[in-house]
Design a protein around this nucleic acid. Sequence first.
DNA 1: TTGTACGCGTTATCAG
DNA 2: CTGATAACGCGTACAA
Lengths: 325, 325
Amino acid sequence: MAGVSTATVSRVLNEPERVSAKTRSRVEAAVAHFDYTPHFGGRALASNRTNTVGAVIPTMENAIFARGLQALQEALAETGVTLVVATSNYDPEREAQQIRALLGRGVDGFVLIGEARDPALYETLERRGVPFVLVWSWRPDCPWPCVGFDNRAAARAMAQRVLDLGHRRVAMIAGITRGNDRATARVKGVRDALTARGLGLDESNLIETPYQLEAGADAARRLLSATPRPTVIVCGNDVLAAGALMAIRSLGLNAPDDVSVTGFDDIDLALILDPPLTTVHVPHRRMGDAAARLLLRLRAQEDDTASVVFETGLVERGSLASVGT
Amino acid sequence: MAGVSTATVSRVLNEPERVSAKTRSRVEAAVAHFDYTPHFGGRALASNRTNTVGAVIPTMENAIFARGLQALQEALAETGVTLVVATSNYDPEREAQQIRALLGRGVDGFVLIGEARDPALYETLERRGVPFVLVWSWRPDCPWPCVGFDNRAAARAMAQRVLDLGHRRVAMIAGITRGNDRATARVKGVRDALTARGLGLDESNLIETPYQLEAGADAARRLLSATPRPTVIVCGNDVLAAGALMAIRSLGLNAPDDVSVTGFDDIDLALILDPPLTTVHVPHRRMGDAAARLLLRLRAQEDDTASVVFETGLVERGSLASVGT
DNA sequence: TTGTACGCGTTATCAG
DNA sequence: CTGATAACGCGTACAA
């Protein structure tokens, strides 16, 4: 309709400055008139690029991933890159499937949560030359580019604070550690602190459970049925802590007078709870943003592709008190 | 490597039963060996199908969409359809962009939130023959296939209950109504109930604000600074209600003794709050599931493509009390 | 500055 | 049951 060849249309769409203003406006008029959209498949086939990155997260139902994704997406969108999201439901095999599915869709970059996964998967990624960034997780000497924080150190710091307040009967509700290096590191961190003071975390004081409200409440009820009961319950994230607080209330107990509770993540929820939650602050949005920038640098083959580590902070609110007060 | 033509490989992948067991296993071996994945772009180009549906939601940061999406995705995955998600941040223009972007990616189905959008967009969708389902919203005689509930009637029922409890000074914190038919319908529903009893909802008693915790708290503070202050704050969703409860606490007031609060959605949060939130229960997961099924029927050109309407329920917890008790 | 012509990886048609 | 081959829509050398 614009009386030009398909090549010219292609140029108008991709390198408008290489086309004369007159032809360009004719083409643009035609594009608007038919409300034409370039065919993604054809484009991917011809150029072997999709300008799409994939993110595989455990679940969208956890606010921390939602936040991080939102930031990630905004940063990517600025450079015309689209984000497609898949979920694994905390299942390593399902994660592998999703990664392969996205590979087939030609994503040319990945954002993955944590580090724990089948080495074969890393091989596939490297063989295909698809760059990736690991987020939410960081440890010294991690061999892959990552943007995260030291879950173990953060959990250790929280546990140390708990011990400093005089607690000795410490229980923990952790997330499921299988295939989840963050959950694993958080348990290790708590163990570190306890061991350093000659204490332990035996089987009866540690429950692993899915990151869900009801699950946290159930676990807390079990932990609190012991005699003597723990003076503090350290939780693997804020949702579990919220569940624990619910259980405490339903048992007719009071937090923090009878039992203290701590969380991890510092989502909005932490502020709403009564008592407000003492927790570990994690900069989810900034991590999403940093992950996007690192991935873009990797895709552009730039030099500065060092991992990024964030500091976490202990936020003291009302749910943790010194023992016996 | 398997010594067969590309056509046969294609058949093994798509219609394995039409290939002899012997050749099939040879091909499958080769596929495994090279860890081959079919190229999505080529496939889309040749077949003009992508087995992908797109969902454009306002934000992932609201738990209700996260829930609905999770259910949607699970139901779609059962039939081998992939879901790609984009966000509009409650901005109608951005939503239009995202829809066009997804169209270009060849999605062959859409799930869209609510009904309010530029008619041109609906035209584009119909012209291209891409089926779509509207969710979260439903009204009598909606001309498009939708899976939702009657926001207006639900809000009206809540407001009626509030009035039945003796409240007369009613204030409302609503979501931003521009381009958001759910938020709009909820305000209308509350107005319906008030008007029927000869009451109104003037400017000083209605604040529109983004669906965010802090925004809800700010709005509540403003509403509560009036004299005489309202006896109840009806909120457009649970997040706003949580913010209102925070504000009430920070002002040294008590809910529900000094001010009652109601929510909308019935997310986990409602149960955690203190007092627990009286709210409208919405079956988010079931809606996601039903939306998936309806969209699949539309794609398959089946006859039974009627809209689906869900009932909502009023969940009475502690945040709403009768006036003066 | 613009057009021609080829190839990207897959599916669908048709013939064997 | 299998192979040959022509699309599909786009990007990109290369030629004009």
